[in-house]
Amino acid sequence: MTILIALAALGGLTLLLAAMLILANKKLYVYEDPRIDVVEDMLPHANCGACGHPGCRPFAEALVSGKALPGKCTVSSDEGRVKIAEYLGIALGAEEKRVARLACAGGINVALNRARYQGIQSCQAAALVSGGGKGCFWGCLGHGDCEVACDFDAITMNPFSLPVVDVDKCTACGDCVVACPKDLFSLQPASHRLWVNCKNLEAGDEILEECQVGCTACGKCAMDAPGGLITMINNLPVVNYSENHNTQVPIQRCPTGAIVWLDDEEGVVKGKEAKKIVRKGERGMGYS
């Protein structure tokens, strides 16, 4: 008897439940493309925003709906991008790898400080106090806001308090560009190897008092560069990257090494006439 009651009760109960679920299933089903999940899984989950979307999931949605191409994701490996493209059966849409470049070489071994900054150790904070203590008004303050801002550990501060970008790790997310109060960072295609490593708008050798590697606006690079590749604008050389810029000629006569060649193996290559910097310690304050 107990068995029968139990069977009836539970059977009835489950029947009710099943009926309800079936009903719910019919009424409330919301369709979502399952491929979005799959694609999201294939993405690196960095949510860096370098692709122009707020995060990996929105990017996945855009990919599935055909509004974006996998190549936009600069963080993924090549394989990863190909895999997504194959899965969705779309073109890769490869983008040239871009990296963040710093336009300052004024580490503490070559550049002077005008004043001693005291306060919150951050470039953004220091920049608000009379522009920071750095002698050069345009130069890197060296408190490492960019290092903190970088989510990919691609930026480290070198012994001279200058940030160094690890090109392999850099995803060109642009966080450092925003973080730098002196606007020294910019995102450049990795193939741009001819690089002006200074932002000082002043001209003349007085600059060298503040920073030994600053651009004195002598214009030698512009003279040497083939066919209008480099023009002097506002006391700084500007490379016209739409021309053929695969040449090391312009850097050779630069007296301070303010225009350089960025080499994969050798790193920053300065011209032959650039003064060698041998100091390993801090150059210190402008005055005693």
Partner: peptide
């Protein structure tokens, strides 16, 4: 007047 000054926020 050639001493380095200290700077900080008010």
């Amino acid at each position: 007047l050639n001493r380095t000054l200290n700077i900080s926020t008010s």
